[in-house]
């Protein structure tokens, strides 16, 4: 049986199972456990209604607990233990000590820091500028579609696209990478192997993510710009503000909360960035990042302790944003 058929069957079984579960459990609750009949009818309805939310929630909560909450705790435990034949051995902070003694770890942390500094900022900035420029343009929606398109392309696909852009052939051969062609046309002395130049290569990998994420920033910010009350802008025009003043002093402050949302969303993505580095340089030539370092430790060196420790570092970096998000969400609920 081809796995694709298996997949369709699984979907069928899952749909039937889900409907069956919810239908039967509700039936059980209403007819058998707490029937709305007899002398306790009123009390039974109330009890059934207290339990029902948990019936609706149970499968999702179970999956969330098992697939996201439990791993966090297990990762903390693994980061404090060593794998020994036949089991685990308490190691205290040994894994963390070992990790902080590894220059590759510091390289990854430093690079992640630069990614954080560059990618969310530039993506948001470009997104904002493009959203503003295309706002009143007749063909603005076409332009936006094209800039938004990279969102549909996988990180791996984007890596292939940009590897061709950065392609390098030895001097004297015809250059097929457009970056080298432009570089030579502008008077560069000889073609460069861009992805092997430390410092610059990390930035060239960031370009790939900026290229993908600008569309995301643009879509959200463009909706926010449209939501600005017209009166505020009209008032500014009457007062004689020029277009730049309107943009920076009237529009940007009003959409600041949305800008923050876009910035934090891209920041989280950057903290977890893996595919682009894995596919383009695999962390060579000084481009290592935390997620790829972790992958190396977990699956190449088979060192679960240090791997889990570096996963915890990613978690710690995400934590401030997590707390901020939860606070914002609770504020909104009130």
């Amino acid at each position: 049986m081809h796995p694709a058929i298996q997949a369709v069957l699984t979907v069928g079984i899952a749909v039937i199972a889900a409907i069956g579960y919810f239908y039967l459990s509700n039936l059980l609750l209403d007819r058998v456990l707490f029937p709305a009949r007899g002398k306790n009818a009123g009390r039974n309805i109330n009890r059934a209604n207290m339990i029902r939310p948990w019936i609706f929630l149970f499968p999702a909560l179970f999956a969330l607990g098992l697939y996201l909450a439990y791993p966090v705790i297990e990762t903390i435990r693994l980061s404090l233990t060593d794998r020994v034949p036949g089991g685990y051995e308490w190691a205290g902070v040994d894994n963390y000590v070992q990790m902080t003694g590894d220059p590759k770890f510091w390289e990854a942390l430093r690079n992640n820091f630069f990614w954080l500094l560059v990618v969310p900022g530039l993506s948001t900035l470009f997104g904002l500028i493009i959203a503003q420029l295309t706002d009143r343009l007749k063909w603005g929606s076409v332009a936006k579609s094209i800039i938004f398109m990279p969102m549909a392309i996988s990180f791996v696909g984007a890596s292939v696209i940009f590897k061709l852009v950065y392609d390098y052939r030895p001097a004297g051969e015809e250059q097929i990478g457009i970056l080298n062609a432009v570089y030579l046309a502008l008077g560069g002395s000889e073609p460069q192997a861009w992805l092997t130049i430390p410092g610059l290569n990390s930035f060239l990998l960031m370009v790939v993510l900026i290229w993908i994420q600008t569309g995301f920033a643009m879509v959200i910010l463009s909706a926010a710009l449209r939501g600005i009350p017209e009166e505020t802008i009209e008032a500014a025009i009457v007062d004689g503000a020029n277009p730049f003043q309107i943009f920076f002093k009237i529009k940007v402050p009003q959409i600041m909360p949305t800008i923050m949302v876009v910035w934090t969303t891209i920041t989280i993505l950057v903290l977890k960035i893996f595919d682009i580095v894995f596919a383009m340089t695999n962390g060579q030539w000084g481009t290592q990042v935390l997620a790829n370092y972790m992958y190396d430790k977990l699956f190449r060196s088979n060192d679960w302790g240090v791997g889990s420790a570096s996963a915890m570092v990613i978690m710690l970096l995400v934590l401030p944003i997590l707390i901020w998000n939860v606070r914002q969400a609770r504020k909104e609920m009130r």
């Binding site: 791993p71 297990e74 693994l78 996963a311 944003i321 998000n325 609920m333």
Partner: peptide, 21 residues
């Protein structure tokens, strides 16, 4: 309310943590 907050929190938990466990 707590459950909703927990969902928002889980929204950003890096899936890297989940790989080995």
């Amino acid at each position: 309310a707590i459950l909703i907050a927990a969902i928002v929190a889980l929204l950003v938990v890096p899936l890297q943590l989940a790989l080995i466990p």
